[in-house]
Design a protein around this nucleic acid. Structure first.
Lengths: 116, 116
DNA sequence: TGCATATTTAACACATCAGTTAATTAGCTG
DNA sequence: CAGCTAATTAACTGATGTGTTAAATATGCA
């Protein structure tokens, strides 16, 4: 049971339809029907995707007459990015080269540059 | 069915146990038993979490005698971060202020600052 | 070979997810 | 109010996810 925020965020992002909805919302607010238009799935399905996004805090919703407008809220994306950035040093090539260099100059036996 | 890379990555990250495993691996390679130690779940469960992480490309594995060592591979995290960064302008407050300012000085009718 | 250790696979249970269609709620308008 | 449009909820289905225990596999060693 993913009660924690990050799990909610990541699992909301794990669905391609939901990511497409977010992409659409990055161009501006939209109603449920507008959001549903590009997809080949039913309106209730879209409605539930929106609920998932809302529960994750990725969108907020407002009512205007019978239309419910969705708006992108990027705070959770920032949260998720911050979590990932703890790992940035593992994909930063310059870090890796620096690391290899430091190991080399101190003759570290685990020097990954010493691969056979 | 999340066949696309990003879906695999995000759903791998959606589980707190798997995120904890990645955190552990950021301190160095580890065997299945070592990875399982902090958790209150069975070894087969851990084994399957590792398979999910491996399928997402988040770890690689090597065999050394009867031990299978897991190693963090951060490439997918970079991919995911890059996807999220398309939304960076939505969470960057200074961008929002700049955007409002630009709209205002050019009397854009859609000026969000003109909300009632 | 035969046992011990490390890990995976099999078989199962149960919960959640993503979709459907049908019915319902909400708000506008003639 | 009746009817229209927008959207959600209900009830159901099938697939997937996460856990279990028991059995199988892989490797090293006496």
């Amino acid at each position: 049971m993913p009660a924690d925020r990050l799990s909610l965020i990541f699992s909301a992002l794990a669905d391609p339809t939901r990511r497409a909805i977010l992409a659409r919302l990055s161009e501006g607010e939209a109603t449920v029907n507008e959001l549903a238009e590009p997809f080949d799935i039913s309106l209730p399905a879209i409605s539930r995707h929106l609920k998932v996004l809302e529960n994750a805090g990725l969108i907020s919703r407002s009512r205007n007459a019978q239309w419910r407008s969705s708006k992108l809220e990027a705070g959770p994306l920032r949260e998720a990015t911050e979590w990932m950035e703890k790992y940035k040093r593992f994909w930063d090539a310059s870090f890796i080269r620096l690391d290899a260099h430091l190991r080399k100059i101190q003759n570290d036996p685990e020097d990954p540059g010493a691969k056979q």
